[in-house]
Simulated scan of single mutants.
Amino acid sequence: MAVRSPVSHRVTVVALLLLTFATGLVDAVSVLVLGHVFVANMTGNVIFLGFWFVPHSGVDVAAALVAFVSFVAGTVVGGRLARHLDPYPRRWLTTALSIEVVALTALSVLAGTGTLDYHDDTKLVLIAGLAVVFGIQNATARQFGIQELSTTVLTQTIVGIGFDSRLAGGTGEREKLRYTVVLTMCAGAAVGATLTLVTVAPVIALAGAVVATAMALFYFGPAAT
Rank of each mutant, 00 (worst) to 15 (best):
Q143I: 00
M215Y: 00
G145I: 02
L154N: 04
L16E: 03
V109A: 13
L167R: 14
T213G: 14
G188S: 07
L116A: 05
A141Y: 03
A63L: 06
D117L: 12
A201F: 04
I127W: 07
A128I: 05
T95I: 11
C186S: 12
L97M: 11
V211K: 09
Y219R: 15
D120A: 12
F68K: 00
V31A: 10
V46L: 15
A73W: 00
G135A: 06
T94V: 12
L149V: 02
R166C: 13
T151A: 13
L183D: 10
W92E: 04
S108Y: 01
A209W: 04
G170H: 13
V133I: 09
T43C: 07
I204L: 05
A207Y: 07
T122F: 08
V11N: 08
G169M: 13
A82C: 02
H119Y: 14
T122R: 11
A168D: 13
L16C: 05
G112M: 10
A205E: 06
A28D: 10
G162P: 11
D117S: 14
A63Q: 09
P89D: 09
G129F: 03
A212M: 11
A209F: 08
A67I: 04
E148D: 14
E173T: 14
H36D: 14
V159P: 12
D86L: 02
G78P: 00
P222L: 12
L18A: 09
A141W: 00
T196W: 05
I161C: 08
F48V: 01
F218N: 10
V200R: 05
G169P: 14
L126R: 04
F53T: 01
K123S: 12
L130C: 04
D86E: 10
L195V: 08
A28I: 01
V11R: 09
